[in-house]
């Protein structure tokens, strides 16, 4: 009873085939920090576990130049945090991924797993949405690319088709004067899950904001790209009025629920507070770039 088969293929084609063969009973294993916990608690009862850590493409970070990076979906948070060039180019993305779990968890947990677990509160989500990350997906019918905000269809659900595997995410090249930041609110200082998470990615040129994207987590069934917040910042000198307009856009975008982690009112208010605070950090960083 409860037999689980384990395979660790060397290629994405094999992994995809193994997932297809397993029907609905297959689960991808990267760091396992979600899957193993869910198996222990009885939430997940997989028939086949496909370990993707032997697939080179999923375990490597490529510097594509100009601030662009392709990061394998199974690369651990610890390795991402230790990648100096990546950290310098995308401090917001790295700080978000480095908030996933404790030091020990960081040694295994991957950003790809965090995305595919599809929690609206996942820390990687808002930062990668703000970054404009593109996902590379490998499936039985070949490869496709989607923007990260198209991955989630609801809490715990993704748009991945049967046999499809998230291979990597690519962060785009950005002009000089760009940076990003991620902030989340948790009642504690560690070992917690975001009540609200906000990622801001912006470019400043000649004292004006020339590009801005805002990602918002834990306030709706999926991570949100708040286009109105970005628009409020672009063209402005990032003054208080522009930041307040962006904060208002974040509050308006919220569709939260009342639950054990916070009320609708609280989450809505905090979305605005964190927009201002994370934008302030991103602005400081961008000025130094």
């Amino acid at each position: 009873m409860n037999d689980v088969r384990y395979s660790a293929p060397n290629s994405l084609d094999e992994a995809s085939k193994a997932m297809m063969a397993a029907g609905g009973a297959g689960r991808i294993l990267a760091g396992g920090t979600d899957l193993l916990v869910q198996m222990r608690s009885g939430m997940q009862k997989p028939g086949v576990i496909v370990d993707i850590k032997k697939i080179d493409e999923m375990m490597s970070i490529q510097d594509l130049g100009g601030g662009s990076f392709r990061i394998g979906a199974a690369v651990s948070g610890a390795l991402i945090g230790e990648h100096k060039a990546l950290k310098k180019a995308w401090p917001g993305v790295v700080e978000a991924i480095n908030l996933i779990g404790s030091k020990q968890i960081q040694g295994r947990a991957s950003a790809g797993g965090n995305l595919c677990n599809a929690s609206p509160a996942a820390d990687s989500g808002p930062a990668l949405v703000a970054a404009g990350a593109m996902l590379t997906i490998h499936g039985p019918n070949g490869r496709r690319e989607i923007p990260v905000e198209k991955l989630h269809s609801g809490p715990g659900r993704t748009t991945l088709a049967p046999g499809e595997i998230l291979v990597s995410f690519t962060l785009p090249a950005r002009p000089k004067g760009s940076s990003d930041a991620y902030l989340r609110l948790i009642p504690r200082t560690e070992m917690d899950i975001a009540v609200v998470g906000v990622g801001v990615n912006l470019t400043i040129s000649g004292g004006k904001c020339t590009a801005a994207r805002v990602g918002l987590g834990a306030v709706a069934p999926t991570v949100l790209l708040v286009e109105d917040a970005g628009k409020a910042l672009v063209g402005s000198s990032l003054d208080d009025a522009a930041l307040e307009k962006a904060a208002a856009a974040c509050r308006a975008a919220c569709k939260p629920i009342n639950d054990k982690r916070g009320t609708i009112e609280y989450r809505t208010k905090i979305a605005g507070v964190l927009l201002k605070r994370s934008a302030a950090i991103a602005i400081e960083r961008a000025k130094g770039n």
Partner: peptide, 27 residues
């Protein structure tokens, strides 16, 4: 932060250390 949170059916909603928040060292 510590409290027992019950739902409308009288079931405990936070039966774990994630949502039953004891202080951690960094707090």
């Amino acid at each position: 932060n510590e409290e027992y949170i019950y739902n409308a059916k009288g079931r405990l909603d936070n039966a774990g250390f994630l949502d039953y928040r004891m202080p951690v060292a960094s707090d």
